[in-house]
Write a protein that binds this DNA or RNA. Structure first.
Lengths: 395, 395
DNA sequence: GGGTCTTTGTCCTGTGAGTGGCGAAAGTTT
DNA sequence: AAACTTTCGCCACTCACAGGACAAAGACCC
């Protein structure tokens, strides 16, 4: 099998990223954007066509003279993204511009171990392949719900992924699919997704806070993921909120997650149901046997005061931590994502209120705090972006 | 007057930074480090000699054949650094390798306003000039104790610098000295100083926490200062520690600075003196009229339990904030600096204890937390480094 | 419909930067 | 003193790139 094509120099890489992010362009327009002579541009484009990465696509409208030829990424380019969550697998296939062509998802407990879960993910990919969506895979991005050694392409001592520690995910999937593979933390991928297709498109430095089973933060510095020296940057779930807070699974008291992680939310909701503070939640508890964030969202949307109160308090705690991080990091945007983003504007309003009150004024002067609009797609788009940045690069 | 020389391409810039950081090198050794053919290396070095930035310096020891010619930065290169503190001015002159050749310091209240303070700084520079230390100034780095718009080269709404808001420091000094000038926050410059000459030389991502009149943090990402979108990154003095804490000048309660800034330390020390809890501090208070961090350090060194207790509690609060930042940022090193670094190992031990206990294990796995060893020089070395990075670059 | 102007794409040649070989110079080792 | 090693200047050869000339394609004017 032929190795998938890669750009041969920085100019080709630049052109590929341009076509990916800005869409098809006429040769004339490309000439104005990149700083290359007409001859060299033509040569590089010809080479990209030869590599099968780029192709002509008709003629552009005239700008007063001869019509210029439009150039686009080959429609046969395919990136694959696996978004392994704590309780779900998402698999998607995108074209070269990272538009999602197919997306399947199924519940899956990550605690079943690396082999089982990855096999399941490959099965799902097979479904998409059967639909004829995938002539060839040019790269695969994988997100996992825990800390990752990006260099090694494997999880390292992940707290909620037994059986995954130092499992060579990148190399195993690379072997299987015969394409470049990169592995990263799932929150980082969501941040990349927002950078590519979401509200962060024009922002260089921002934070994405994901509140779900756990609470994590993707950090983007200068348009790239910041991972820290051991790949655990953004691990904000166990930042201390209050010494007198509830005990956390990590052994300390008063962690953010102990206040507002998935388990904490269920705990508080069930307490409100049992104490009689919330008839709505009591009803939902009886119907489902247990409660989760979604039930709280439902109850709050129906006007249940206890549910609203739970969300408010959670938002306040998230806001307290976030206020400190905003003062420290001075981001240009903060995005709130994860299952809990369904809690909507009650949550957002509370977070905003705390952050705007407690962060340094210069840092909040022009700081939007918004809910993610990508829903489930952020992770897989981010995975595609991760590997596409790699494939569309030249070192 | 001729414009000071600058490198003409990236190779020359690389060579200059190499000679600055690694010291004089033989042409043969340089050839092994940079990826250039012998001929091109010779050409670029010749041009640098022509520009007056580099010169030959005899022959290296033989490595088994003909001896290679040693090359070094011109000994006539000079960088100037102004470190404007809240209550002091430091002015230093360095050679091309950022070795401090002359350093003068005097007390000066920054609240006298930009014109007065900068004139004073220029006077001090005049002293050094009179000593014949400065044939020509190739660049000047300036640190000020407040937020800076790096792009504009001026302070922006600095809380403790009345009369400095949007004063064009960079352009004014550039006009005066006729050389490139950059202005940055003083904490950022200390971080750069540590990066160049301190304990962070081999670390790409680290934090420098300065505890003095205020509390701030320099953030280094990938070997460069991270400033955030509005230049206020690292402003950690008003991160919330405890809702029930003392009121802060900023209007909120329980800020880190309200627990352990310069004013808070004096307040607690004087309270301990007056309450009779500390005879040592009472004595010092009587002798000096008021107390500061240094007095607490003196008393603690002499074994005064109340002073030690003050330091311990301060360290705990700093540690609580820092633990969160470490989890978030996952640095490779944390340096504690500022006047309070004189509090020494009592402080350090307490900070370490809290951070190692409360941060994510992966982030603290191999995280040194150390006291700065550069004392007063960090700021000026950082200033020289800032402008030298700029002058020794080619865009 | 024809002529003129504008824009785009291709071809081609001149230029200039950079590579690498060769040999002299300068040391070391035997 | 001879043989080997390393360094460095010189030089010719290569190759990539810029930019002009020209052809193709279309707009606009009369």
């Amino acid at each position: 099998m032929r190795m998938t094509a890669r750009p041969q120099n920085v100019h080709q890489a630049r052109l590929l990223r341009l076509l990916r992010d800005e869409g098809p362009r006429s040769r004339a327009e490309l000439g104005e954007v990149v700083r290359l002579s007409r001859s060299k541009l033509a040569v590089e484009l010809d080479r990209l066509v030869e590599l099968g990465l780029v192709e002509g696509a008709g003629l552009a409208a005239s700008r007063g003279g001869r019509r210029s030829g439009i150039v686009r990424l080959s429609p046969r380019l395919r990136f694959v993204a696996f978004d392994i969550g704590a309780t779900s697998i998402d698999v998607a296939v995108t074209d070269g511009a990272l538009e999602v062509l197919g997306h399947v998802s199924e519940p899956c407990d990550v605690r079943q171990g690396a082999t089982v879960v990855l096999d399941r993910a490959l099965d799902l990919l097979g479904k998409l392949r059967d639909e004829g969506l995938i002539p060839q895979v040019h790269g695969t991005g994988i997100g996992v719900p825990g800390p990752v050694s990006f260099r090694d392409g494997m999880p390292v001592v992940p707290p909620i992924m037994p059986g995954w520690d130092r499992f060579p995910v990148r190399d195993a999937i690379g072997q299987e699919l015969g394409c470049p593979v990169l592995v990263d933390n799932d929150v980082n991928l969501m941040a990349l997704g927002e950078l590519h297709a979401g509200l962060a498109r024009s922002v260089d430095d921002f934070l994405l806070v994901k509140i779900g089973t756990g609470i994590g933060c993707g950090i983007v510095v200068d348009g790239a993921i910041y991972r820290g020296v051991s790949g655990s940057a953004g691990d904000i779930g166990h930042i201390r909120v209050d010494d007198d807070g509830p005990m956390c699974a990590c052994g300390n008291a008063g962690c953010l997650e102990a206040f507002f992680g998935g388990a904490a939310l269920a705990r508080d909701a069930e307490a409100a149901a049992r104490s009689g503070a919330s008839p709505q939640l009591a009803q939902l508890l009886e119907a489902h046997g247990r409660l989760s964030g979604e039930h709280v969202a439902t109850a709050a949307a129906a006007g249940d005061p206890a549910a609203v109160q739970i969300i408010r308090e959670g938002g306040r705690h998230v806001g307290q931590v976030l206020a400190g991080l905003v003062s420290f990091f001075n981001p240009g945007l903060v995005i709130i994502a994860g299952g809990v983003a369904g809690l909507g504007h009650t949550l957002l309003a509370e977070i905003r209120s705390v952050v705007y009150r407690r962060s340094a004024p210069l840092a909040t002067g022009n700081l939007p705090i918004v809910l993610s609009e990508l829903a489930g797609a952020a992770g897989v788009v981010g995975g595609a972006r991760l590997i596409s940045d790699h494939v569309f690069s030249y070192s």
